[in-house]
Design a protein around this nucleic acid. Structure first.
Length: 343
DNA sequence: AATCTGGTCAACCGCTAGTTC
DNA sequence: TGAACTAGCGGTTGACCAGAT
């Protein structure tokens, strides 16, 4: 049984409010208050509107001391800093700005402030990217040489127990992504721990299970994080992926998809596009298409880097008896994983 | 002048939390 | 205790407008 509608949809007017409706509503509320019942209010005053609609109209436009537009620099700063620390909790943010409504702030953020902020950050990041880009290719080359594992080693147990990375579970710290040194392993782990704060319980459980069975050192390269972020923007359809030889693999980054809309991450990926481009050049990748054995989506948009990252980041068996049947080195995904320091 | 495109913002929708009975 | 209901919230939509083509 469905829930009863709050009003008779057929006899309710939608769309913009007329001055007459505004006058009626305003006059009534100023005289009698809302009476604590928005649903009954429109009937009382003869408005063919939903109670929710009346409430919204009053709160956002008709109540006294409402300010529209003309946000000051100070208000911008407050909105930005609150957004960074608490996210899109518009009602809380609005409570800090007298005369502003959550709807107003939300619109202002989505249409102007976000762009203004991103433009500012992008400028700074691009300046920084230019400084490091000349060093980047040599650095990647060096990194890859260090990370390449001899074939003899690969034919042995690829999961040498060394160190168990802690299962992320702590609340997300307020540090911005720019505070992490992406060239530093410890910092990368810290960042991923931050990301891990958004792990669902289910994913944490899976993650714990996998790591307790196969404790191995997880060395994240900077590029891995980029690819993971790209992956998040083109989320894998499921945690379990099937490699070219039919082995099921566990995507250690499954669970981060919810971050696809995360401002910080999108920013991280976008501002480092030059570096990703540099990588593409280094690996000789024109355009990466999904292989026939991959578990892709039907969307043509979720190809190239996003899906390449799936194969490169997908590894490790989920259940112990698959340990014997680990993907063979000739499996594309596994070969790619060598580039990213899987040990 | 007509059409297209992108930005803005009021309003709606669906969901959750809280309250009442 | 749980169903019924409302208030409130955040995401999304769509109408409108201005500038570009």
């Amino acid at each position: 049984m469905g829930r009863a509608p709050c009003c008779d949809k057929a006899n309710v007017k939608k769309g913009p409010w007329s001055p007459e409706e505004d006058t009626k509503l305003k006059a009534y509320i100023e005289q009698h208050g809302t009476g604590g019942n928005w649903i009954a209010l429109p009937q009382k005053i003869g408005l063919k509107r939903c109670g929710k609609s009346c409430r919204l109209r009053w709160l956002n436009y008709l109540r006294p001391n409402i300010k529209h537009g003309g946000f000051s620099e100070e208000e911008d700063n407050i909105i930005c800093s609150l957004y960074v620390s608490i996210g899109s909790r518009w009602s809380i943010i609005a409570a800090q700005l007298p005369g502003r409504t959550d709807n107003d702030i939300k619109n202002y953020w989505n249409t102007r402030l976000k762009k203004k902020l991103l433009g500012k950050q992008r400028k700074e990041q691009q300046a920084h990217a230019r400084r490091v880009s000349s060093l980047k290719q040599a650095e990647i080359k060096r990194e890859c040489q260090n990370l390449m594992v001899p074939a003899a080693v690969i034919n042995q147990n690829p999961y040498q127990p060394s160190e168990i990375i802690s299962v992320p579970s702590l609340p997300v710290p307020s540090a911005s992504i720019q505070d992490y040194d992406l060239n530093n392993q410890a910092s990368l782990r810290s960042l991923l721990t931050k990301l891990g704060g958004k792990f669902s319980d289910q994913h944490q459980q899976q993650y714990t299970t996998v790591n307790s069975q196969y404790p191995y050192d997880i060395s994240f390269s900077q590029d891995q994080v980029y690819l993971t972020c790209m992956n998040m923007m083109n989320p894998a359809p499921a945690a379990m992926a099937t490699t070219a030889n039919g082995c099921q693999s566990f995507n250690m980054f499954q669970g981060f998809e919810s971050l696809a809309e995360d401002h910080d991450l999108i920013e991280l990926v976008s501002v480092n596009q030059q570096q990703i481009d540099a990588m593409q050049g280094f690996y000789g990748i024109e355009s990466m298409e999904m292989g026939p054995g991959s578990t892709g989506t039907s969307s043509t948009e979720s190809t190239s880097w996003g899906d390449m990252s799936i194969s490169s980041l997908v590894y490790s068996p989920l259940v112990s008896d698959e340990y014997e049947g680990m993907p063979h080195p000739q499996d594309v995904g596994f070969q790619e994983s060598r580039y990213f320091g899987m040990q």
